[in-house]
C-alpha cells in the first residue's frame, strides 16, 4: 500500500511542477511561449499514455493516433462552436465517438498482427484526414474557449492547468487498472498468448480493450488540443504525428506511466525550448527531426527499455557502489 501511495505521489509531484509554470511566467521567470510548449507536451503525453497501454502492455502497434486525435479535435470544435454544447458534454461525446469508431476498426483489424495492423490503422487515420478536408476544407476553425461554468471561461493558463489536472487523473487511473487483473491480462497476452489462453484470458477481448483505451486517450488529447490551441485545421493529423507519439514511448519508456511524460518532454519540448535557442545549430531547418531520429537510434541501441528506467538503474548502480565500498 505504501508503494502505491508513493507512485501516486510521483504523479502529483509531476502535476505540481507542471502546474507551477504559468505562475513562473507571471513572475517573469519564463516566457509564455514556454508554457504553450508545455501544453503541447502534456496533451501529447496523454495520447502517448494511451498508446503505451496498447504498444507497451499489450504489444500491438497502431499508427492511427493522429487520425483519432484529429477526429476528436474536429468533433469538439463542431459540438461547442456550432451546437453550443457544454464543454463536458462535448468532451464526453468527442471521446465516445472516436472510441466507438476505434473499437469498430479494432473488430475488423485486430485479426491482423504486427506491421499489418500498423498499416491498417494508418489507412484509417489517412482516410479520416481526407474526410476532415472534405467536410471542413483546409481552413482553420476556431474552437471557443472552455466555459467550465456559466461565466467562468478558461483563458490559456486556465486551460493549461485543466490539462495538467487531467493528465494527473489519467496517470492515476491508468496506474490503477494496469495494477489490476486487466493490466495483468494485457501483460500476459504480450508475453505469451498461449499462457494467456490457458489462464482463460480472451485474447480478442483484451486486444480490443487496449485498442479502445488507446483511442479514447488519443481522443481526449485531441479535444484538449482544440481548446488549448484554439485553431483546428487538417495539417497536423498526419503519419508524422503518430510516429512522433510512437517515438515518445520508445524514448520515454515502455510499460511505464511516467515514461510518456518524460518522452513527450524530450520529443516535443527539448527541440523548441533548448536546441533552437542554441547559436548556429539552432537555425538548422528540421533540427527537431534530426534530434529525435538520432535519439531513437541511440535509445534503441543502448537503452531499449526507454530513458525513464535510467533513474532506477542509476539508483541500483549507486547502491552497488555503496555496498562495494563498505
Amino acid at each position: 500500500m505504501n508503494f502505491l501511495k508513493s507512485r501516486y505521489l510521483t504523479y502529483l509531484l509531476i502535476g505540481v511542477v507542471l502546474a507551477s509554470l504559468p505562475f513562473l511566467n507571471q513572475m517573469g521567470v519564463i516566457r509564455s511561449a514556454t508554457v504553450t510548449t508545455f501544453g503541447f507536451i502534456v496533451f501529447y503525453a496523454i495520447a502517448a499514455l494511451g498508446l503505451n497501454v496498447l504498444l507497451g502492455y499489450s504489444g500491438l502497434i497502431s499508427l492511427g493516433t493522429a487520425g483519432f486525435m484529429g477526429l476528436a479535435a474536429y468533433l469538439t470544435t463542431h459540438f461547442t462552436g456550432e451546437w453550443h454544447l457544454h464543454f463536458f458534454a462535448s468532451l464526453l461525446l468527442s471521446v465516445l465517438i472516436p472510441t466507438v469508431i476505434g473499437i469498430v476498426v479494432g473488430l475488423v483489424s485486430l485479426r491482423l498482427e504486427g506491421m499489418y495492423l500498423a498499416i491498417a490503422t494508418l489507412a484509417v487515420a489517412e482516410v479520416s484526414r481526407q474526410i476532415f478536408i472534405e467536410i471542413w476544407s483546409w481552413s482553420s476553425l476556431r474552437p471557443p474557449a472552455v466555459l467550465l461554468l456559466q461565466g467562468l471561461a478558461l483563458d490559456r493558463d486556465g486551460m493549461y492547468l485543466f490539462i495538467v489536472g487531467l493528465l494527473v487523473v489519467l496517470m492515476m487511473l491508468t496506474d490503477n487498472f494496469i495494477h489490476s487483473p486487466v493490466g495483468r491480462a494485457l501483460l500476459t497476452m504480450r508475453a505469451s498468448e498461449a499462457a494467456a489462453q490457458a489462464m482463460g484470458i480472451n485474447l480478442f477481448k483484451y486486444k480490443l480493450m487496449a485498442f479502445g483505451i488507446a483511442t479514447a486517450y488519443a481522443a481526449i488529447s485531441g479535444v484538449l488540443y482544440a481548446h488549448f490551441i484554439r485553431a483546428v485545421d487538417p495539417s497536423p493529423w498526419t503519419l508524422l504525428l503518430s510516429l512522433q507519439i510512437l517515438a515518445v514511448i520508445v524514448i520515454g519508456g515502455f510499460r511505464t506511466i511516467t515514461g510518456p511524460i518524460f518522452g513527450s518532454f524530450i520529443v516535443f519540448g527539448v527541440p523548441p525550448l533548448i536546441l533552437n535557442q542554441l547559436p548556429v545549430i539552432g537555425d538548422i531547418p528540421g533540427l527537431a527531426f534530426i534530434f529525435n531520429g538520432a535519439l531513437i537510434i541511440i535509445v534503441i541501441l543502448f537503452y531499449p527499455r526507454g530513458l525513464v528506467y535510467m533513474g532506477q538503474d542509476l539508483k541500483k548502480l549507486i547502491k552497488r557502489k555503496e555496498v562495494k565500498s563498505q
Partner: peptide
C-alpha cells in the same frame, strides 16, 4: 502477480471498477 494471473477467471470486476 504471476499467481494472480491464474485467478483471472475468478475476478468479477472489469476495467472501470479497477480504474476507479
Amino acid at each position: 502477480d504471476n499467481l494472480l494471473i491464474g485467478a483471472h477467471i475468478a475476478y468479477q470486476t472489469g476495467l472501470f471498477a479497477n480504474a476507479f
